[in-house]
Amino acid sequence: MGYYLRKLAFYLTALWAAVTLNFVIPRMLPGNPVDILMAKLQQRGGSVDPAARTAYETLLGTGGKESFATEYLAYLGNLLRGELGVSVSAFPAKVSDVIGDALPWTVVLVGLATLISFLLGVGLGAVVGWKRGTWLDSLVPATTVLSAVPYFWLALILVAALSSGLGWFPLNGGYDVVLDPGWDPEFIGSAIYHGTLPALTIVISSIGGWLLGMRNMMVSAMSEDYVLTARAKGLTDSRIMVRYAARNAVLPSVAGFAISLGFVVSGSIVTEQVFSYPGIGSKLLQAVQNNDYALMQGIFLVITIAVLGANLVVDLLYGLIDARTRDRSTVS
């Protein structure tokens, strides 16, 4: 099987595992989520007809009325049709609509922040490794401490200092609420203005890991024979650094992207909450606080799919930047 096929198969397996986990968790844990949801629905003046109950039961479990297999098949069927149920915290909106509204905010914020952090961290790490023995070395201990700072704590400190204190940035939100969401320059400007501080939080907290990993790999790569050959060839320093040392040193950072992305996503959820950002992380917490189980599950699935998708893209990219991977796949 080729490298790409194997990767695809792996991520499909992971997706299936996540979907199944999502099915099993509410059935295994204590509590009776369906009853809680129905009670909530009633409070909100929703219909308490048997159809609504059946929909929730498919999602969360019938409590033994039907066999596991039947429930599982019905659940998978609903997922394939994109039916994730009705949200009680945003009643009468459907879960899929709530997610659809929140998702773009998170994808843009977390996606951009991760990309900036990766590029900056890897770039700085390459330079720090290349210039080893200069004052740049002192960046290394500083960044280790920075990467151990809790995201939300840093976020709140930044808000206190830059928003409350200096008034440079808004306190919270994703855009100026007097504006109507749309693709006009005023709204986009407002969204960028509101997104800067959350993005800054994510970048500051996650950059240390990239920097450190890249720096260490760079130091190792610099003592490789191909770098010596490049020096003997009389190439310019910048060319040796970029095309020979960094080009090889970056591979482990890309290969370890999955692990790092997990940290960033986790941190982003909490960061969104601090900034009351209209993204999927805030919605997840809103769902948890309101026992909106259907929304909770839907969001977990969407986050998982997004993370799996991002990892798949990075893995495919890895195949492109390291030819050895593509050819080795037949062996391992």
Binding site: I259, S266, V270, I299, F300, V307, L308
Partner: peptide, 12 residues
Amino acid sequence: LVIPGLPLVIVV
């Protein structure tokens, strides 16, 4: 490894 941890913890 690829299933994000904190969202799962929050759901549980």
